[in-house]
Write a protein that binds this DNA or RNA. Structure first.
Length: 1093
RNA sequence: GGGCGCGUAGCUCAGUUGGUUAGAGCGCUUGCUUGACAUGCAAGAGGUCGCAGAUUCGAGUUCUGCCGUGCCCACCA
């Protein structure tokens, strides 16, 4: 291979070239491929991470860049530490989001709906989209430099994952942890589909608040004959199954009053009026409403029924805390099938039942009286209100008109959402009920709790215990899974503690189809036949000698109406046809995306097969994710890992910060404040992006990134504001030319050149990379003629100069800092340590000092070369996880001039920094020049003296080229130390020390700078006879004097405080005394200098 | 309403168990062009650490309350 001439290297780091060059080479050489064999043979320790799979439809944004950069930093370092590393990549099929995107495109581009294509057609279409999107995501990750094992890439809907999903569902079903229940969903009557909470937006609309009377059946004398209820949705009254009143209205009013009083006492004057008004209203209510409510409560406890107007139904008056005596009439109608709160009331008061009055298209169904059937909700409302008024059930005076109502709308169709009670598959999160009435077990495949003691009825209210959720809680509580930072454990535990059952079905086509077949039966005869039939189907299964099917039955014990379910472990055609021939119908729904995500740490490794991969790499080493999916994803992975493999999927969860925009808001495409990492990579380079991210990733804070557009015409940066951030086109105020943004949609906008969105905060990373690049160029140029023998340092102490030992010591310290920071996921600390060391020490001092040594051939030059090569080598290794491309590029160039380097040097060149050993804290210096606080401290003296001279030059406005002379009054040790640094004072400050030591005289006309912070005083006196600006020097000294005086007064005060001297630790007191003495000495020097001027 | 954060220099942020004269980057001011780097070098200005109390010899750091701000969850018949 021809050698590169270091002098021909460009003066700016070419990130584009390095990125294009190295990634393919890394892949080709298989650096990222994980081999289970060395682990299984005990030769290497495993380290594994599964990627949080990005949604296939989404292009990656900066949040992903952060998430993946951090994982890559961890993986690359572990690889260098000799672990066999598996970083498992993949994508998520993201059911709803993906289907929605593809459906939208289908409609926009072809004018077709999903019904035009049919289930299979649509799914096939989505698969095609998926390949395209996935490729883009993969490409973005590669551009970022992510060292994923691409040969093992998975997709949550691929065959391997599907197998795991089927096995899991089958096991849950067989264990009786799956049941069929009712659940309220957000029903989009236009699209006739359920939409997730995320796809619902709330909009205030003007509404009307009606009051109606429901007649009481057979009231006793003195009791109210009607119950008044208020509602914004009168049409739902057709589905009412109860009216509720609070069980203790007086108590509740007391409680509300007490709260208000407390609030009033604490409220500032201007806020008092409305609270006082509320209190008045409350007092008024006690008179007007309370007696009636208490009567109603008694009636409810007696079991009084009400006549539901417009229907022939009777509904109970019940007590429930949901009814707020301080609001409305104090009573509330209960429509469990069409309101989330009423649904909860139903859960607490099981016998009242629920009536679904809607057809999927949003019209009223057969459960309502004939005259309303088929009406839309809107028409039904008019009819119901009119009929109630006609029947005398309406109380118009109590109505509230023009009330603003927060109404849920579907994000996709923009039509109002109807809460709709749908059959759902649930996974049980708890397995026991415990209440004051006793302990209850879950019935198998049913959601009703059954008492352990058969005499008791179901409990009214109970805590759930045990089960899947509990096992996941235990894992965190016992420390099997550690959460970093620990405060996030609370989110996890609180959520799991509710033990809410997991509704796992989704009314979609894109996803893992639920492997259950259903058959209804009606009556005893049909039921018995179904049981027999199921038995036969199972025998057919047994012949296959594997458990391929399972069945269960549910029925009403009185009527024998029920359903029989068959769950198949695999899609075996023969069994399916047998089952379907028997009248079983396959479930239409698919599983929640999180169901397959929950299996991700092991489904990706081939579970349920006992693969080598699984044996070698499960459990994984850490999960790295953002806080918003702690519940949805992390908790469920732990739960499933414990349930299916008996082992937690990861011993640690690292929760990283989120990236926010300049206004502190989460970045998202819909807000228009998102930044495309490719824009940043293009402008600043992947290394700059990565380093910048690491530098910003602190523990407590989210990362705020003020965002700006870059004009493609004139490169002007335009701050993004709340106003311009969603504009499709912007006219550049600098050059007047227009450009388009990522939100351009119209053809005329799309024709304009695109203005990328970036953040100037990545300049730090770019500048740093460039700094390192140039330091490397310097080193490469000056390592000409370097040979391995040059680096042999047989008698190091005699040959190493102070700066060599200093650098070697510092390398050890920095290695230690970076290592421990990365061990604790303190990425910012690691990045800062490297930044400061590389820039302020390696470049500003060591490289500067070697310039003087390279000027002359000889052993000193050779030592400098050896140390420089070694220093750069260690720096590249430490920096590689954060800046892989830059470090690899420089590594390869360094290999050309100094293939064998380091102290002690390896036997041969290491071909890539990817596979180089991570430095040990003592490594470079080990056995030759150990880490030494003394050396670092000594060197700091030199740095301080140099700084003093430079400061005087600036203060006196002495031109940089003008030579200076100075003396240093210091103890003999310091003088001996400084003496050999003479060439560097010349080199770095154009100054010569004419006298050093305890007796050093100050020049006749001098600027004086005392140096604080060392055990003995150091005074620097710069000869300024030729240049003097007396006023400037006086000013400078006066400032020093003021500072010192103030400081001395402070310390004296402290020391004269007897309590301080008595209570503070001796070392603190001693420290103060020492500093006081030093400050006093410095002050004396300053005052002497002032007097002399 | 519940939970979790954050408020330190003009901006974005560090600040380990309380103990030197509170730091960095950007921006700003001043001075520097020929050999690593103007994506740079040298120096400087800029902070009563949101407010008020408490604990302590000592508080940016601990506690309480308030103000401001953000995120998550629940909810508004």
């Amino acid at each position: 291979m021809p050698k590169t001439d270091p002098k021909s290297l460009p003066s700016a780091y070419d990130h584009e070239a390095a990125q294009a060059k190295w990634y393919p080479i890394w892949e080709e050489r298989g650096y990222f491929h994980a081999d289970p064999q060395p682990v299984l043979q005990g030769k290497k320790k495993p380290y594994s991470i599964v990627i949080p799979p990005p949604n296939v439809t989404g292009a990656l944004h900066l949040g992903h860049a952060l998430n993946n950069t951090l994982q890559d930093i961890l993986c690359r370092r572990k690889r260098m530490q000799g672990y066999e590393v598996l970083w498992m990549p993949g994508t998520d099929h993201a059911g709803i989001a993906t289907q929605a995107v593809v459906e939208r495109r289908l409609l926009a581009e072809e004018g077709k709906s999903r019904h035009d294509l049919g289930r299979e057609g649509l799914v096939e279409r989505i698969w095609k989209w998926k390949d395209q999107y996935e490729e883009r995501i993969t490409g973005q990750l590669k551009q970022l430099g992510c060292s994923c094992d691409w040969e093992r890439q998975r997709f949550t809907l691929d065959e391997v994952c599907a197998r795991a999903v089927r096995e899991t569902f089958f096991k849950l079903f067989s264990d009786g942890k799956v049941y069929r229940g009712k659940r309220l969903v957000n029903w989009d009557t236009f699209l006739q589909t359920a939409v997730s909470d995320d796809e619902v937006f709330h909009e205030e609309v003007k509404g009307h608040f009606w009051s109606f009377h429901y007649p009481v059946i057979d009231p006793r004398p003195g009791e109210p004959a009607t119950v008044t209820i208020a509602t914004t949705r009168p049409e739902t009254m057709l589905g009412d199954t109860a009216v509720a009143v609070h069980p203790d209205p007086a108590g509740q009013l007391d409680k509300v009053e007490a709260e208000l009083t407390e609030k009033l006492a604490a409220a500032p004057a201007k806020e008092r009026a409305p609270i006082e008004k509320q209190l008045e209203t409350l007092a008024e209510r006690r008179k007007t409403h309370l007696p009636k409510l208490e009567k109603l409560r008694d009636m409810a406890e007696r079991g009084v029924m009400l006549k539901l107007p417009l229907t022939d139904r009777e509904i109970p008056l019940i007590t429930d805390e949901w009814a707020k005596p301080e609001l409305g009439s104090g009573c509330v109608k209960i429509t469990p099938a069409h309101d989330a709160n009423d649904y909860e009331v139903w859960q607490r008061n099981d016998p009242i039942g629920a009536i679904n009055i809607l057809n999927p298209d949003g019209t009223l169904n057969d459960s309502v009286p004939e005259k309303y059937r088929g009406l839309s909700m809107k028409d039904a409302r008019k009819a119901v209100v009119a009929d109630l008024a006609e029947g005398g059930f309406h109380d118009p005076e109590a109505d509230v008109a023009d009330r603003l109502i927060d109404l849920a709308h579907s994000d996709r169709s923009k039509t109002p959402i109807e809460p709709y009670l749908a059959d759902q598959w649930f996974v049980k999160m708890g397995d026991r009920f415990v209440s004051s009435e006793g302990t209850y077990q879950w019935a198998k495949h049913a959601h009703e709790p059954v008492p352990v003691d058969a005499d008791k009825g179901p409990p009214a209210r109970a805590l759930r215990e045990g089960g899947l959720a509990q096992s996941a809680m235990d894992s965190v509580e016992r420390g099997e899974v550690g959460v970093v930072p620990p405060r996030y454990a609370k989110t996890y535990l609180d959520w799991l503690g509710e033990k809410r059952d997991w509704p796992v079905g989704r009314q979609l086509w894109w996803g893992h189809r639920i492997p259950v077949w259903t058959k209804r039966f009606d009556g005893k005869a049909e039921r018995d036949a179904a049981i027999e039939e199921a038995g036969e189907l199972c025998r057919m299964d047994w012949e296959r000698d594997e458990q391929v099917s399972y069945n269960c039955r549910e029925w009403d014990p009185d009527t024998f109406i029920g359903v029989s379910y068959m769950c198949l472990r695999e899609d075996e055609p023969e069994l399916i046809s047998a089952i379907e021939a028997a009248g079983y119908v396959r479930d239409e729904e698919v599983l929640d995306t999180w169901f397959s995500s929950a299996l991700w740490p092991f489904s990706t490794m081939g579970w349920p097969e006992e693969t080598d991969l699984l044996k070698a790499f499960y459990p994984t080493s850490v999960l790295c994710t953002s806080r918003d999916i702690i519940t949805l994803w992390v908790a469920r992975m732990v739960l499933m890992g414990k349930y299916l493999l008996g082992e937690v999927p990861f011993p640690q969860v690292y929760i990283h910060p989120k990236i926010l925009d300049g206004f502190g808001e989460t970045m998202s495409k819909s807000k228009g404040n998102g930044v495309d990492p490719l824009d940043v990579i293009e402008q600043f380079g992947a290394d700059a992006l990565r380093f910048g991210i690491a530098y910003l990733t602190t523990e407590t804070q989210d990362v705020r990134l003020p965002v700006e557009f870059v004009c493609p015409h004139c490169s002007a940066n335009l701050k993004q504001t709340k106003k311009n951030r969603v504009l499709p086109r912007i006219d550049c105020p600098e050059c007047g030319e227009a450009f388009r943004t990522q939100w351009a949609e119209k053809p005329e906008d799309l024709a304009l050149p695109r203005g990328p969105v970036t953040s100037e905060r990545f300049e730090l990373g770019r500048n740093f990379c460039n700094k390192l690049w140039n330091a490397s160029r310097f080193a490469l140029t000056n390592l000409e003629g370097f040979s391995a023998s040059n680096s042999q340092l047989a008698t190091p102490d005699s040959q190493l100069k102070l700066e060599d030992r200093w650098l070697l010591s510092r390398l050890g310290t920095v290695t230690e800092q970076v290592s421990s920071a990365l061990d604790d996921y303190r990425f910012a600390d690691a990045a800062r340590a490297l930044y400061d060391f590389a820039w302020n020490e390696f470049c500003s001092f060591y490289v500067e000092m070697t310039k003087a040594r390279f000027a002359e051939e000889g052993p000193d030059k050779q030592v400098a070369q050896a140390v420089l090569a070694h220093g750069l080598d260690v720096l590249l290794r430490l920096l590689h996880p954060m800046a892989p491309f830059l470090t690899e590029e420089v590594w390869s160039l360094l290999n050309e001039v100094a293939p064998v380097r380091g102290l002690p040097e390896p036997a041969e060149a290491v071909e890539s920094v990817c596979v180089a050993q991570w430095p040990r804290a003592q490594s470079g210096a080990e056995g030759i020049s150990p880490r030494s606080v003394e050396i670092e401290d000594q060197f700091a003296k030199f740095q301080a003296v140099l700084g003093a001279v430079r400061e005087v030059r600036q203060a006196q406005k002495i031109p940089p080229k003008e030579p200076l002379q100075f003396t240093v009054k210091c103890d003999a040790t310091t003088a001996n130390l400084l003496e050999p640094m003479q060439p560097y004072f010349t080199q770095m400050a154009r100054a010569t020390a004419t006298d050093l030591g305890p007796e050093a005289a100050s020049p006749e006309i001098a600027a004086t700078k005392p140096i604080a912070g060392f055990e003995s005083a150091i005074e620097v006196h710069v000869d300024i006879a030729q240049f003097i600006d007396v006023e400037a020097e006086k000013k400078r000294l006066a400032k020093e004097q003021a500072q010192l005086t103030k400081y001395i007064a402070g310390v004296r005060g402290k020391l004269s405080n007897e309590k301080f001297v008595a209570n503070a630790p001796a070392e603190v007191v001693e420290g103060e005394k020492g500093r006081l003495a030093e400050a006093e000495q410095n002050l004396a020097a300053v005052e002497a200098a002032l007097a002399k001027l």
